[in-house]
């Protein structure tokens, strides 16, 4: 059972979260009309062995989207932060 340290709620079982895939993807800018670039953004994914930055939503908690740095081999989690880049309101818990 992977446990994720949600910056908002504390350490919770991964079953409270929904997986959101690769966090390093950048949505093409609004003036980009190149279908190839959009295709790659929507469909192309790396499947790395080792550290991966990925998105998880705390769907059964604070509903925050989190950026989680996870080792795909050992499932060790190196870091967790809000995907919005913001900090938890009211300081840290």
């Amino acid at each position: 059972m992977i446990r994720i340290d949600c910056p908002q709620c504390g350490v919770r079982d991964y079953t409270e979260f929904t997986y959101g895939g690769d966090a390093t993807l950048q949505r093409p800018t609004s003036d980009c009309d190149d279908q190839i670039i959009w295709h790659d953004y929507v469909y192309q994914r790396e499947n790395p062995r080792g550290l991966l930055r990925e998105l998880w939503q705390h769907s059964q908690g604070c509903r925050c989207w989190l950026e989680v740095e996870r080792n795909t081999v050992t499932h060790d989690i190196q870091s967790v932060q809000l995907a919005s880049g913001g900090s938890v309101s009211g300081g840290t818990r």
Binding site: R27, S59, W65, A83, S84, G85
Partner: peptide, 13 residues
């Protein structure tokens, strides 16, 4: 709902 939260927190914070 999830789609909108994703857009607001990840894509257009």
């Amino acid at each position: 709902m999830t789609h909108m939260e994703h857009l607001l927190q990840v894509v257009w914070p």
